[in-house]
Every structure is written in structure tokens, then in C-alpha cells.
Write a protein that binds this DNA or RNA. Structure first.
Lengths: 213, 213
DNA sequence: CCGCATCCGGGGCGATACTG
DNA sequence: CAGTATCGCCCCGGATGCGG
């Protein structure tokens, strides 16, 4: 992108990550950790292949990401955030906080979805209301990669891609799941929209007390 | 901008403010408060006039800014952030924090500068090291609009456009001023680069103890 | 299959001129 | 002062191809 040529921190930041797709590439690497070209592209439906390659070059040149060869068994190139790149987390987080208002409106008809994108809403909407109790784990199944939400000692964390056992399982469309997590829907209404909840209701009650009515 | 069509908070936020120039328009309105078309354009050197008009329309449509007619004496249109627009402050702030690394490198040869852009570096580099003492005010003159940095009860705040009396005055180029405030230059080195400091050195010592060596 | 490069059509952007 | 009008260019989207 053409530089703004402004001696201002915000403008300089946008010179580096202000291009179209760029911050979404950083988001993918932040949520998935080191991954391949194809994995990144899967998280950016609609991006032109050459454009992704170009952005990755630019980000590497700017010191935001690093290219690394995967260990011998699999021949693949891995991309991952550098320390400098990981420092974009607060900015991305705040941008997501601001954008959460549009998530609450529900998805547009042609909106794509990846289960790992649940991270922001989860951290935004949920909290551990019973920090003194032992950790619990809520598995979420939206038909894609498994996502788990853990409440432990007052903290809520989201993990992606692990099939570890959980205390309860939530199955349904992204919109129904988010409706429940955000408190827009209670468990009964969410069930009417095809959401299925298995396990102790104490788990969802701990994360989101409004849900179990 | 073409929508990313992703059911993700970050992508939705970028759908609204991810266009080129858009976040810089928000920055200007955040730093200056309500101001006119021409004032905004002054803070965005190089923007095409039609693009600014288009962006303002889009931002108004998205509920980020509001258009308002100035009171009778002056016939002018004023733009200002809505509550929703003001909520972008944390995101912009974090983006600026990330970009401050590029400010420390000094300006590029053709970089533009506006004194009000000092806000981010000031909040980033300075703190009130003697919170128990009475408030002090440091005026900064880079040849443009007056900027003042106030230390009061442990807080550092920046005000723009006011000519109130100050306890000390800093005069010089943006780079020299920032060099001093960031601690990259001490008072002696900064003076060799054309910076002039008038008033008690206690003021700068309170804000930036490393400077007075 | 992975990681791109190439080609082409369309639209966003930059620069300048002009107007109520 | 607050935009609109115009034009050329480059960036982007979409499809295809291709070497490792």
C-alpha cells in the first residue's frame, strides 16, 4: 500500500497492517498458531491466491511474520507470527470488541464462518462466575474444528483443534451457539433453534448465568 | 469497500473502518472534536477530496460520525464522532501503541506532521512521576497549533489548541521534541538539534526524568 | 496436493479541475 | 467552504496454470 507519509503512530501502523486482508491474516495466525499457506487461505474465503502470497511477503518484510520449513516428515512451509507480530494482539482484540456489536445482529446470508472465530465472542460474553470451583470444559461443535471453552480460576480460555474430554457439549449452528453465549437466547429458545446441549447445565451456568432459564 | 462476508467480529469491524483513510478520519475527529470538512482534510494530507466526501458519507451511514450544522453566526457543516464512533478509541489507541516503534525511528524525509499527533507518543512515553505535587503544564510549540501536556495527580493528559499559561515551554522540530519526550535524546543533545526549553527543568523532570541529564 | 505465478476485467484510489 | 466531476492508474477479484 502506498504510505500515508504521516509522522504519526497510527498512520505508521496502518502503513504496515492497513492493507486489505492483512489484519485478517494476522488474526488467522493468532488463532491457529503456525500454519501453512493453504490453512491461512481456508480462513480467508474469497482472497485471491496471488494476493495472499503478496501479503505474506510484505508481512515477512515488515517483521510481522516468519516463514519456516516444517520438520522433515512433512514437506511444507509454515508461517507464524514473530514476537513483533504477536504484539498486535491488543489492537486486534480491541477491534474485535468494537465489532462484536455486528455479530450480535446475526450473520448475513452469505457470511462464512470458522469455529475458531468464536474466540472473541467467547472472551467478550463469558466469564468464570464461580472461580473457586474446579475447572470445567465446554466443548462446542458447529460442524467444523472442535472448539473448547474452559473456565478455570476465574479465567475463560478458548482452545481450538483439541478433542479432549469435556464436561458438557454444545452442538448447533454458529448463530444459535452465539445467541446462547451472548445471552440473547436462553437455553430453551436456543434449543428451539436447533441447538443441542448435553451435560450438566452447571457448566453453562458457570460461564453464562443468564442462559439456563 | 467490498465486505469480507465473514461472521467474525474483527472482519465486521474492518468492513466498517477497514477502508483506506477511514481510521485516520476517526483519529482526526477524536483528537480535534467536532470540526469542518476543511479541518479534517488538513489532517489528511494527500487525500483526494472526493474520497474524503465519500468516506464521510459511509461513516455517517454506519453511525460512526454525525453531520451537524454549526450555530448561525458561522455557516459551516460540522462533523463529529457519535458515541459509537468514540468507542473506537481503545482500538485506535492500541494500534498507535503498536505503531509507536516506527515513530522512534524518526520521520521519513517526506513525512507530514501535525502537532496534535503528539498525543499518542506523549501518553506512551510520559507519566507523572511526582503525583503528590501540584499540577504542572508543559507547552509545546512545533510551529503549529499549540499543544500542552499536563501532569496532574499521577495522570498525563494532552490538550490541543489552547493558549493557557504553562510552567515551561518546549520549542523545536517534531523529531527533536519526540526525541526528548521518548528519552532517546537528553536535554543537552536535544538542544544541539535546535530544541529550546524555557522554564523550570523540574517540569520535564517530572514527566520524563531521563531527559534532564 | 502445496505454494505460488500469470493473465485479465473491474473498481477503488490519486490528482487536479471545477462549481454552488 | 464543501463538496462534485473527470480521468488514468493501480490494486484487487477470479480463474487458470504449473513446478516441486
Amino acid at each position: 500500500m502506498r504510505s500515508y507519509s504521516q509522522y504519526c503512530a497510527v498512520a505508521k501502523a496502518l502503513d504496515v497492517v492497513g492493507d486489505r486482508w492483512t489484519l485478517l491474516i494476522v488474526r488467522e495466525l493468532m488463532l491457529r498458531g503456525a500454519c501453512r499457506y493453504t490453512d491461512i487461505r481456508d480462513g480467508l474465503p474469497g482472497i485471491a491466491s496471488n494476493l495472499l502470497a503478496q501479503r505474506l511477503r510484505e508481512l515477512e518484510g515488515a517483521g510481522v511474520i516468519e516463514r519456516r520449513d516444517a520438520p522433515p516428515p512433512v514437506a511444507a512451509t509454515l508461517y507464524e507470527l514473530t514476537v513483533r507480530g504477536a504484539e498486535l494482539a491488543p489492537a486486534l482484540h480491541e477491534l474485535g470488541r468494537w465489532g462484536i456489536a455486528y455479530i450480535a445482529e446475526g450473520p448475513a446470508v452469505d457470511d462464512e464462518f470458522r469455529s475458531r472465530w468464536l474466540s472473541w465472542p467467547a472472551e467478550q460474553f463469558l466469564s468464570d462466575h464461580e472461580p473457586h470451583k474446579p475447572p470445567v470444559r465446554l466443548a462446542i461443535d458447529t460442524g467444523q474444528d472442535p472448539v473448547a471453552i474452559e473456565a478455570s480460576a476465574g479465567e475463560v480460555r478458548v482452545t481450538v483443534g483439541e478433542y479432549a474430554p469435556a464436561d458438557a457439549t454444545l452442538t448447533g449452528s454458529p448463530h444459535a451457539v452465539l445467541g446462547l453465549l451472548s445471552g440473547r437466547l436462553d437455553l430453551k429458545s436456543a434449543r428451539e433453534r436447533g441447538l443441542e446441549y448435553r451435560g450438566s447445565t452447571a457448566v453453562i451456568a458457570r460461564l453464562q448465568p443468564l442462559a439456563t432459564t
